[in-house]
Computed example of a mutant assay.
Amino acid sequence: MFGISPLGWIHTLGSLPAIPVAVYMFARHGRIVPRSAAGAIYFLSMLIGAATVFLVARQPASKGIAVVTLALLLMGYGISRFPQLGRAAKYVETLSLTVTTFLLMLPTVTEILRRVPDGHPLVTDLKSPLLLGSQAGLLLLLLAGLTAQVAYLRKNAKANA
Rank of each mutant, 00 (worst) to 15 (best):
K155R: 15
L122M: 03
A38P: 05
L131C: 04
G14N: 10
A61M: 03
H120Q: 09
L44H: 02
A61V: 10
G39N: 05
V53P: 13
R87A: 15
G49M: 12
T147I: 01
M46V: 11
P34C: 13
L85M: 14
L85R: 07
L122S: 00
V150G: 09
T94S: 15
L140H: 04
L16T: 09
G30Q: 01
F102D: 11
V116H: 01
K90V: 14
V123I: 03
L7I: 12
R154H: 13
L130E: 04
A27F: 04
P129K: 05
L7Q: 07
T124G: 11
L103H: 04
Y91P: 12
V33G: 02
P34D: 12
L104T: 15
L132Q: 11
P20C: 09
A89T: 10
P20F: 10
G14H: 09
K158L: 14
I112R: 01
K90A: 14
L140F: 03
L113N: 02
W9Y: 13
W9F: 10
V33Y: 00
P20M: 09
A136Q: 09
L47Y: 13
Q84Y: 14
I10A: 15
K158M: 08
H11K: 11
L146C: 08
G86T: 09
L142W: 00
L72E: 13
F26T: 02
T98P: 04
V67R: 12
L73M: 08
E93N: 14
T98W: 06
Y24P: 06
L140N: 01
P60C: 02
V21F: 05
P83V: 05
I19P: 00
V99Q: 13
V21K: 06
V56I: 14
S96M: 13
L153W: 08
L142P: 05
Q149L: 07
T12P: 05
L104G: 06
G3P: 02
L16N: 00
G137W: 13
M105V: 05
G133D: 04
T124H: 11
Q59S: 03
T101K: 04
P121R: 06
A151N: 10
A27C: 03
P83T: 08
M25D: 06
A144Q: 02
P107E: 11
L13V: 08
G64F: 08
I32T: 06
R58E: 07
F102P: 13
F26N: 05
L122H: 02
A89L: 12
L146R: 00
Q59T: 07
A18Y: 06
A71R: 07
T98R: 05
T69E: 05
H29W: 13
L143T: 00
L7N: 03
R28H: 08
G78L: 07
T100P: 09
A37C: 00
G49F: 07
G145P: 01
G119T: 02
F43G: 04
H11V: 12
N156R: 13
L104F: 15
T52A: 08
H29D: 12
V92T: 11
G30R: 03
L139D: 00
P34W: 10
R81Q: 13
